[in-house]
Design a protein around this nucleic acid. Structure first.
Lengths: 160, 160
DNA sequence: TATTGTTATACTCTATAACTATA
DNA sequence: TATAGTTATAGAGTATAACAATA
C-alpha cells in the first residue's frame, strides 16, 4: 500500500496536471487558503494587464480612489487601502511625477495633503479600469454572472 | 462646491471610521480588489494565530499537503501551491529541521525527493488547522453558515 | 504633546539564473 | 539534453522608527 510517487505521474506523460490529486486534501476546505489563492490568481492577471499602463493593482487602487474625486488625504488613503503611509508616499511620488495626480496642502490643516486627479489621471484611470475588468473577466471565467455578483457581495462583507 | 477635506473628518472626533466614505467608489465593485483585500484580512488573522506554532499561511499550506499523506515531491508541492521551487526548499528546510517532515529520495527517480510527515508534523498540522479555522471564524464573522459555504464554493472555482 | 507626511532602513516574499546530481 | 533540487541574489512588498512641519 505505497502512495503514488513522482514516477507514477511522469508515466502518463503530463505530470503537470497531476497535481490536482492534492485537491481533496483539507487545504481546499480552508477559506483563508482559497482567498489567498484566488487573490494571487486575480492580482497576477490584473498586474499583467495593468503593466502596459505603468500601473499595478496597488497603484491602480490609489489612483482609483483619488479619481473618485472625494479629495482624500494621504492618511485617508493609507487607512482605506490598508497600506503604510510610507507606501502611499512612494506610490504618490510616482503618480505625481507622471502628472496623474496633484498634492495640495489642505488650507484647513496645513499638515495634511489633499490628493486630486489631473485630467490625464482620470483618463488613465478609466483605461486601467477597463484593463482590470478584462482581467476579472479572465480570472472569474469559471463563474456565471449571478455567481460573480454573489462572490463580490460576500467578499465585500468580509473585506469591510 | 468644495470637496470635504481631512478637517471635515476630524470635526466629528473619530476620523478613523470616516474612510468608509470611499466605499461607494468604483473600487469596491472590482472583484480583484475585493479578493486582494479579503485575502489580506484573512491571511493576517491566520498568520497571527499561527505565529505561536512557528508557522505562517505558506508554511502551513506545505505542511497540510504533506500531512495529507500522498507523499508529494517538492516539484509537485511547488506546482500545486504555485510557489517557486526555491521557496519550497526554504520552507522544507525549516520544517525538516524542526522534525515535522522528512525528505526521502524517490527510489524510482533519484532526482526527486518525496516528502512525508512525521508524527510530530501530523500533530502540529492538526493544531495549526484549529488555529486557521479559528482565524477563518474571525475573518468570516460577518457571514452566515450558508454564505461561508457558498463563498468557499465560488473561490474554489476561481482558484483551480 | 500629538499628528501628517517624509525618509531611511530592514525584513519578508517572490522571481531568476546558475550549479549538482541524476535521468 | 532535460529535469529535480539547491544556492545565491536581486527585486517587490511591507513594516518600523526617526525626523520636520504643523497643530
Amino acid at each position: 500500500m505505497t502512495s503514488p510517487t513522482a514516477a507514477d505521474l511522469a508515466e502518463d506523460g503530463h505530470g503537470d496536471e497531476g497535481v490536482q490529486r492534492f485537491e481533496d486534501a483539507g487545504l481546499t476546505a480552508e477559506p483563508i487558503f482559497l482567498m489567498a489563492r484566488a487573490a494571487s490568481v486575480g492580482s497576477s492577471d490584473a498586474n499583467r494587464r495593468l503593466a502596459r499602463l505603468g500601473l499595478k493593482v496597488r497603484s491602480y487602487s490609489v489612483l482609483a480612489v483619488v479619481a473618485g474625486g472625494r479629495a482624500p488625504t494621504q492618511r485617508e488613503l493609507s487607512q482605506f487601502l490598508v497600506m503604510n503611509p510610507s507606501q502611499v508616499v512612494a506610490i504618490l511620488d510616482d503618480l505625481e511625477e507622471r502628472g496623474l495626480v496633484q498634492r495640495r496642502t489642505d488650507p484647513r490643516d496645513r499638515r495634511s495633503k489633499i490628493i486630486v486627479p489631473t485630467e490625464a489621471g482620470r483618463k488613465l484611470c478609466a483605461q486601467a479600469k477597463d484593463a482590470v475588468d478584462t482581467a476579472a473577466e479572465e480570472s472569474l471565467g469559471a463563474l456565471g454572472p449571478q455567481e460573480r455578483e454573489e462572490l463580490s457581495r460576500l467578499l465585500r462583507k468580509v473585506a469591510f
